[in-house]
Design a protein around this nucleic acid. Structure first.
Lengths: 176, 176
DNA sequence: CGCATTAGTATCGTCTCGATACGAAGTTGT
DNA sequence: ACAACTTCGTATCGAGACGATACTAATGCG
């Protein structure tokens, strides 16, 4: 995994963390596109992440702008060239290819087992968990296309419910 | 995974790579306890690994000694305090605990799927594969307790066949 | 209003890592 | 035997990662 990440970023002379930050930002929802959320996601301090963001900003891969209501908060998003870089790099592609000889069913089972292990690990470490609305306790379906986050009280579009969120609370699956 | 590795090493003020190097050396067989093998394993250059080893040596966690036949080669092994550090740190423990709510059968299936994916990924990258004798093409069983590596021509004890080897050639499993 | 809290930045020192250059030991070809 | 090449490891340098610490600014709470 280390080599893969380094190679993918190396072509654009990006460090592994920088690439991971870009991937995160491409998938973060409106509650999760801040430096602090990225720090929690990567398991780094906010100071460290601040430096990474400075660098990505200087390279024009991200944009930083103020939050409307809380003026301490910085919002982050990929710039056009940041999105293009991700599109051209396709960091996930080697991993997808690696499963080509494995039946979809086995892949599904393995993924679900890994997801459970991750959740247990995160609970043991009292770490922030990230996930999308589909498996989140707070998510309410209002209509065919409109959802609502019961925690924040906002309405969410369909596409937004597939992004990752820092205030994720996994539904407890009833398995005996 | 990043956080976990950093935390485990942090208690002994070891960087993630340094801890990974120690774990590798604790499991490397006689063909694989060299700086170059470690570099291949970690996916780093030999120069980088050389620096890591220098540091581990200064801290007394490893020992370096010359090879008998090829005097360019440096052999590596954990020192007593290196082994003690690994024993006290137990870097794998959090991962084992993370699977405690998953049935052994699901874990086995997920592990085998991951192993296959890793093999495919490594083949795609033409990377060196590492593994133990149990699933290696070269391994011959001579008697109850004595094995032989068909590639190198050496006899191997039972415990040595459970270490990881850089000249590993996975048996092709006949699955249709 | 004063005070604690929170989001983010700035700076410093230690370490990682690749690139490059190097030396020493082994190998190959003639 | 000897020159040319290769392989194993080390040394050094610069960009960057990372945590620790200290700081500013905005918010919230009494």
């Amino acid at each position: 995994m280390r080599s893969e990440l380094r190679k993918a970023g190396g072509e654009e002379s990006l460090q592994p963390v920088q690439l991971q930050a870009l991937v995160y930002l491409s998938r973060a929802n409106r509650y999760s596109n801040t430096p602090q959320a990225l720090a929690d996601y990567l398991g780094l301090t906010k100071g460290t992440v601040s430096q990474t963001l400075l660098l990505l900003d200087r390279r024009g891969l991200i944009e930083r702008f103020e939050d409307d209501v809380d003026r301490r908060v910085v919002r982050l998003r990929l710039s056009t060239s940041g999105e293009r870089l991700l599109y051209e790099t396709q960091p996930a592609l080697p991993w997808q290819n690696a499963t080509r000889n494995i039946s979809p069913n086995r892949v599904r089972n393995a993924v679900s087992a890994l997801r459970e292990a991750l959740m247990t690990l995160q609970q043991d470490n009292e770490a922030t968990t990230f996930g999308d609305c589909q498996s989140c306790t707070w998510c309410q379906k209002l209509s065919q296309r409109i959802y609502r986050c019961g925690q924040m009280g906002d309405r969410l579009s369909g596409p937004e419910t597939r992004k990752i969120c820092r205030i994720y609370a996994p539904k407890v699956e009833e398995v005996t």
